[in-house]
Write a protein that binds this DNA or RNA. Structure first.
Lengths: 216, 216
DNA sequence: GCGTAACCTTACGCACGAGTAAGTAGGGTG
DNA sequence: CACCCTACTTACTCGTGCGTAAGGTTACGC
């Protein structure tokens, strides 16, 4: 009719449309017809290029996840101090989410609630948690050299802490995704305060216990 | 056939079954037939007692949310110190999630990803965030009386912090829901350390800034 | 200028699952 | 014992939406 476009271009248009529709409707309620229509193409083209609904969703997932990872990795200088690395990573992360709210909703909500894709996502997530845990450990080692550590931490503790931090970040990101007016930079600052001050205190061996308010 | 049971009993059986199926399959993929079968009853009974699929899901949501709220409220002594209140609340919260993993998955994942129910859930969540924010503020006032505060905090800061904490807790709870072996008590301890030590440091006016590692 | 391959369409089959109509059986009350 | 109300069933209708068969059209190589 109007324009005949090469495959690669159409594929991106389809993925754009799919991410939008999946984000707004949810995986099941999203219809292939609506995705096709929004992409300005007919349904069989979607099947021809990107396969059935599952495969299409996975393609969305992978594209968005890759973009996110690249954005974060691109924002971090590996030679910087741990807190600077964290700060730059968080800035890049929240900036990305702020700019790709639909993508984030697909990644974080849809993929998670569909048992079929939860595994795929859990894997990506686990990698991030490990990176954060490694960052914490490196910060800890650094602090140890400065002679500030009082409680030796076990690997599981780093992992659990990293899990909690990642969860907190996701939660803030999720909030950001639904609040058009929120500034990603400010969200990142909040997260950084939240994480670093707490982490620093923890790394100095301060521990909360049930019997008294604080020790260390 | 076998047993004729009073309505109230059947309703609970149906809700039990519905929570399980919604949790395992997701809202859309869950079929009324499967729910009915698992409840040991035929489909029209479900419609007769609890209405259409939407209403059934909402009924699940409300039952689980109410139970959760009651469990947490029952665990907290309002006269205790803020950190003790928090500790008891977290203990009750994680204990509940550990004991009702299916219910938690329905609340946290399904409701969230279905735009139709997201609003309902967001309301419940907002109430929790407000409670946590109030707890933080009361802790802050208490600290202020002790003359430890150096940076005056604005209401938005409490809210954002509360949001991050709630997100971290949800994230840990979500992890707990998927890990049969994890002990809820330990999860609560981790969260408490994470929250309280960080919060205490923040309340003492320690702030992270981009230019230097720390101030205060 | 003509084949052919890539791009693109309309129009359908078909399964699955929500919701219902119509009717059966048990147990309490007169 | 006749009544009736509540618990319960089988056996359907019908919409919705995934996936496809079969065919049309543009661009490009030779």
């Amino acid at each position: 009719m109007l324009k005949r476009l090469p495959r690669v271009v159409r594929e991106q248009q389809m993925l754009d449309a799919a991410v939008k529709v999946f984000s707004n409707r949810g995986f099941h309620a999203a219809s292939m017809d609506e995705i096709a229509e929004l992409a300005g193409i007919s349904k069989p083209m979607v099947y021809a290029y990107l396969g059935a609904k599952d495969e299409l969703f996975l393609a969305c997932l992978q594209r968005e996840a890759t973009r996110l990872m690249e954005a974060v990795a691109g924002g971090v200088r590996p030679t910087a101090r741990p807190d600077e690395q964290l700060w730059n990573g968080l800035r890049a992360f929240f900036a990305f989410v702020g700019a790709h709210r639909d993508g984030w909703r697909v990644l974080y909500r849809q993929a998670r609630s569909e048992p079929r894709f939860a595994g795929e996502l859990a894997g990506m997530r686990a990698r991030i948690v490990e990176v954060v845990a490694a960052l914490l450990e490196s910060a800890c080692v650094q602090a140890d050299l400065a002679g500030r550590i009082r409680t030796p931490a076990r690997p599981d503790d780093f992992l659990a802490m990293a899990y909690a931090y990642v969860g907190a970040a996701e939660s803030l990101a999720d909030w950001l995704a639904d609040h058009e007016e929120e500034d990603p930079e400010q969200t990142a600052t909040r997260m950084m305060n939240f994480v670093w001050v707490g982490a620093d205190a923890l790394l100095q061996g301060r521990v909360w216990r049930a019997d008294r308010s604080q020790a260390g």
